[in-house]
Each structure stands twice: as structure tokens, then as C-alpha cells.
Write a protein that binds this DNA or RNA. Structure first.
Length: 224
DNA sequence: CAGTCGATGTACT
DNA sequence: GTACATCGACTGG
């Protein structure tokens, strides 16, 4: 049978149903960045590619907020690289770094704000074999997606995905899933930054084996 | 384990 | 020119 765009979309909806969650609506992303970051923990990142489904549960994120956050790519205003951060929330911001890696962010708040949440680690949920192939020889099941560049590699995310919507009918989507209890959420300073290094805006699921290498210390203070 | 370091290209100053 | 929201290989304990 010829695969039309329509049947492709129908197939994707069917997969979402099997995964147990519906796509997060755009409203989810339009709220304050720290709130979105906190609630992204536990949600499902899913991609349809080459007839496969790759999916996993977000277990670690970092917030890059729009007001006075010197570590944010948007801190000095809009540039060619960070333009996606200034779109309405709910699109992907993908950037290239260290000469060889891509990292992906979920854009938050409303157009013109310049805010995003970095996806730092995902617990594989489906399509692990596909992820292994994408990651290459050095990868193991434990290191499939326990870091921001590894997440992009595992899911095949690259510059062609910069600015795409996560709440539409495309082949990359975030699915709702049960909230993670406060007791399981830890905070620490963000990893690998120089500026604003004291801000504890890395959030992760405490004890989850798919969280990246990062500070062991955590701060038991509610996210504000 | 932990710590160190090279790879490798681009955006921005 | 410099810094970079990283990774993986390698070292030493």
C-alpha cells in the first residue's frame, strides 16, 4: 500500500495511543520556563523514523530562563543561531557545539522571550536497537541517551529539526505521562557552563540510572 | 572509580 | 581570535 501523508499521520496517532499518552498541547510550553522544565520530567519524547518508533522518558533537563540568565544562548538577544528560542514555545531549538555535537532544547514561554529547556537525558522506552545503531560502536544500553548530545545522536536529531513543532502532527512529538513526584526530583547547578554557575536549574529524577554524569550533590528545595 | 585531555567546526566578540 | 549547555579514550590510584 502506498503510504500517504494522511495514513502516516494516522499511524503515528495509533502509536501514540499504544504509548499511553496524548501529545502535549502548545499551552504546556507557554508557561514559565522553570515550571515547564519541572513538568517535562517523566514526559515521553517520541520520534517516528524509517518505519520505526524511537521513544523514551525524559529524566534530566536544564532550564535556560529569559531574565538575566547569563548562561542562556538568548542572554545577549536574538542571533541567527538562537532564533528558534524566540519563537512561541513548543518548538525545538537544536544547536551545534564543540565542533561535533548537537544538543536539543524545548522552547518555552511566548514569542520574543528567548527561553528553552535543554534535554539532557532520556530513559529509552522503545526502539533501543535503532538508537544503538544511531549512536555507534562505543554505545551501550546504559549510555544510549545519558547526555544531551547522546540524546540527539540516539534520536537522529540534527540541524534539520531546528524550529520544528513538537505539538503538531509531525514525526517528533512529546507525549503526556504521569507527573513525577517531588520526592523523586533533585536539583543541581547546570553542567558544563561557566556563567551563572551557581543557579541550580538542572533537574533530574533522583537515582535514575539513565541520568548523565553530573554533580552528585543535590538541593532539596522546591522549584520556584 | 576520578581526573585529564584531544577532537573538531562555528558563532560570536 | 576565543569560547563552547560534549564525548570518549586514556591515565593513575
Amino acid at each position: 500500500m502506498v503510504r500517504t501523508a494522511e495514513s502516516g499521520a494516522a499511524s503515528r496517532l495509533h502509536t501514540r495511543t499504544r504509548m499511553g499518552g496524548s501529545p502535549l498541547a502548545q499551552d504546556f510550553y507557554l508557561r514559565p520556563t522553570l515550571v515547564v522544565a519541572r513538568e517535562l520530567l517523566g514526559k515521553i519524547f517520541l520520534r517516528h523514523v524509517d518505519g520505526d518508533v524511537i521513544a523514551g522518558r525524559i529524566v534530566e533537563v536544564e532550564a535556560y530562563t529569559p531574565d538575566g540568565d547569563a548562561a542562556s544562548h538568548a542572554f545577549r538577544g536574538r542571533t541567527q543561531r538562537n532564533a528558534a528560542m524566540f519563537e512561541d514555545g513548543g518548538v525545538l531549538y537544536v544547536y551545534f557545539t564543540y565542533g561535533m555535537h548537537y544538543c536539543m532544547n524545548v522552547v518555552t514561554e511566548t514569542a520574543g522571550r528567548g527561553a528553552a529547556v535543554l534535554i539532557r537525558a532520556i530513559e529509552p522506552f522503545a526502539g533501543e536497537q535503532h538508537m544503538l545503531r544511531n549512536r555507534g560502536a562505543a554505545a551501550t544500553m546504559k549510555t544510549l541517551s545519558n547526555g544531551p548530545a547522546k540524546c540527539c545522536q540516539a534520536f537522529g536529531i540534527g540541524p534539520q529539526h531546528n524550529g520544528i513543532a513538537l505539538h503538531g502532527r509531525g514525526d517528533i512529538v512529546l507525549l503526556d505521562a504521569p507527573a513525577v513526584d517531588d520526592a523523586h526530583v533533585a536539583r543541581s547547578p547546570r553542567v558544563g557552563i561557566r556563567l551563572a554557575a551557581e543557579l541550580p536549574w538542572r533537574l533530574y529524577i533522583r537515582g535514575n540510572p539513565h541520568v548523565s554524569r553530573g554533580p552528585r550533590e543535590h538541593i532539596d528545595v522546591p522549584v520556584t
